[in-house]
């Protein structure tokens, strides 16, 4: 099971799955505590229009224009939500629902009206991702990990996600104090002169970057599971923020590994031939972990419920 075939077909998708899950879970912790979990929802829905617009403008399907397009779309969406909230005095949830469905609809329409037959870009792919297709074609075995020629053939998503994950860790380390104070006590943060709005904005930007990087691998909707489920389960395990973050990383890694294995080998165990969607299975596993946490985790209740 862990031979040359594993390195070629499973190692890279699995690593990409793990990195996606971790890169999303890290900012997800703060989104959860700030009650902004659905910002991840909105951002990941607008990744599709961003990519389509980038394609229409550049005419190619190379990575960087797509990433930039998706990132810009995420910022446009967040800006639009703010504008509609302020100008129309619309409730935040409704403003969010309005903006992301509209942008998503525009993206789908643009995609259907543009001739994309020459390139591989379609709605289903954008929604579901294709983790399984990110194989390491040049690998011949574990020895390839030391072979520069084979390493050059690694799927580019792996390198991108590695950079994004490292950037995310650095972001949390550098901004730690500001993030924590603005999350738990925005009033105090403002009083000691922290740029509350800018820190919130930076968190949204990092969320968008994580969503865009992970989108390639797991699709725009399953990304939401990675933003929400591991941090939510971790929140039920502990009252300490640092512990919560470690728990969430652990849950994210566990979901990715278990989900990938179940998707790839699970159907074989029950006698079915084909494998199932790995991204979907990762989301399902993260949901099962959250459900178990809701049932058994030590800190699952609110303070007053625990004393009652």
């Amino acid at each position: 099971m862990l031979g040359a075939e594993f390195v070629q077909l499973s190692l890279t998708p699995m690593l990409i799955g793990i990195l996606s899950a971790v890169a999303c879970a890290l900012p997800g912790n703060f989104l959860l505590l700030r009650r902004q979990a659905l910002i991840g929802d909105a951002i990941s829905h607008v990744v599709l229009p961003g990519i389509v617009v980038a394609f229409v403008i550049t005419g190619t399907i190379t990575a960087w224009p797509m990433m930039i397009g998706a990132g810009v779309a995420a910022l446009v969406a967040v800006g639009l939500i703010e504008v509609i909230k302020r100008l129309g005095r619309v409730e935040p949830g409704a403003a969010m629902g309005l903006v992301f469905t509209t942008l998503f609809a525009a993206g789908v329409l643009l995609l259907e009206r543009t001739d994309t037959s020459a390139v591989h870009i379609d709605v289903d792919h954008a929604l579901m991702g294709s983790l399984e297709s990110l194989i390491w074609f040049d690998a011949t075995g574990w020895g390839s990990l030391l072979d520069p020629v084979a390493l050059a053939g690694l799927p580019p998503q792996l390198g991108r996600l590695l950079i994004v994950t490292v950037a995310m860790v650095l972001f949390l380390r550098v901004m730690w104090r500001g993030l924590v104070i603005t999350t738990f006590d925005p009033g105090y943060a403002r009083a000691i002169g922290l740029p509350v709005n800018w820190i919130g904005f930076a968190l949204v930007v990092m969320t968008a970057i994580a969503a865009v990087a992970a989108f390639d691998a797991v699709g725009s909707i399953i990304v939401i599971a990675m933003f929400v489920c591991p941090p939510a389960a971790a929140r039920l395990m502990t009252n300490r923020l640092v512990h919560q973050i470690w728990w969430s990383v652990g849950f994210a890694v566990l979901s990715a590994i278990l989900g990938y294995i179940l998707a790839g080998y699970g159907p074989g165990w029950i006698g079915a031939a084909a494998s199932v969607s790995a991204a979907g299975m990762i989301a399902t596993v993260s949901g099962v972990i959250l459900a178990l946490a809701c049932l058994f985790a030590p800190e699952r209740r609110r303070a007053q419920q625990a004393t009652a």
């Binding site: 909707i221 399953i222 939401i224 599971a225 929400v228 969607s277 949901g287 209740r301």
Partner: peptide, 19 residues
């Protein structure tokens, strides 16, 4: 649980969709 409604929405939405 002590999770807020938005977290519950995000979790249910994405997990059910994944399934």
């Amino acid at each position: 649980t002590r999770l807020s409604e938005d977290a519950a929405i995000g979790a249910v939405l994405s997990v059910f969709f994944g399934l």
